[in-house]
Amino acid sequence: MRWGTPVTLLAAALLPSALPDAFLLHLMTSVAIAAILALGLQFLLGVSGQLSLGQAAFYGVGAYGSALMTGAGLPFAAAVPLAAVFAGLSSLVLIPVTRLRGPYLAVATLGFSIIAYLVIKNEEWLTGGSLGLMGISRPALFGERLRDPAHVYWLCAALAALVYLGLRRLADSRFGRAAHAIRQDEDAARASGLRVTLIKSQCFVISAAVSGLAGALFAHHIRYLGPADFSFWKSVEVLIMVVIGGVGSAAGAILGAAVVVLLPEWLRAVGDYRLLVFGGAVVGLMLFGSGGLAGLPGALRRRPEARP
C-alpha cells in the first residue's frame, strides 16, 4: 500500500499523454470532481460517523456561488476557494442538527437539501431557475483560460489529490482522532473532555466546504448549471460512491467515485438498460463485497481461519 499513492498520482498525471482523447479527459475530470465530493462525505461519515443526505446542497452552493462570482467579474482562482468557504459557512445553518443521531440527522440534512434544490429551481433572478445558468467561464490560472481539456483535467486531479492528502492528514491528527473517538462512543468521548458538538460541527463544515469545492469545479468544467444536478439524487449518488468504495477508506471513496461516474458511461452500450444494470451492480457489490471496493482484495484473499 505504501506505493499506492505515488503510483496512482503518477498514473493520473500521465493519463492525458497516454490517452489524448478529449471525451475521455472530460470524463476523467468528472471523476476527479466526483472524487472530491465523495472524499467530503467520506470524511463526515467515515471519520466522524455522521450520515448526511444533504451533500448536494453544499455542492450546489459551491457551484452556483462560483458561477455567479466569476459572472460578476471575480477571477476563477479567487471565486473557487471563496465558493468552497461559502459552502462551508452555509452548513453552519445545520449546526444545531449535528446533535441529532443516525437517521434523524440524515433526514434533517435531507430536508435541507430539498430546500436548497427548491431555491435553485425557483429563484430565477439568482440561479436562472429551471433554465439554469449558461456560459460559465472556463477555469483559468494566472490569467490564462484553460482551453485544453488536459489542463482542466490536471487542475481538477491535482485538487483532488490535495483534498485526499489534506483529509488524510486531518484524519490522522489530534482532531481526527477526536472525531473518530466520538463516532465510536460519545459518552466516553465526553468523559475524556472532548467538546463533542464542536468537533462534530467542525467535521460538518469541513465536509461541506469540500463539497462546495467540488461544486465550484463542476460549474467551470461543465459550464452550465441546472437544478437537476443538485437534486436529492446527487446526495444519494455521493453516498453510493462512499459506500461502494468502503466507508472509512479515503482511497475507496475515489474508487467509488470512478465507478459511479464511469460505469453508466460504459453501460451506454446497453442503452435503456444502463441504470437498471447500475442498480443491480450496486446491490451485487453490497451482496458480494462486504467492505466495499476497498475491502474486495481482502475479501478475495480471505481465508476462513483468518477471521476471528
Partner: peptide, 26 residues
C-alpha cells in the same frame, strides 16, 4: 446473515430502488 454494516444494507436499498425504477420504465 453476512453481518455487513447497516450502511451497506441501506445502500443496497438505494440500489434496488434504482433497479426497480428503471425496470418500471422499461
Amino acid at each position: 446473515r453476512r453481518r455487513v454494516p447497516l450502511m451497506n444494507i441501506i445502500t443496497a436499498t438505494v440500489g434496488l430502488s434504482i433497479l426497480l425504477m428503471n425496470a418500471a420504465r422499461l
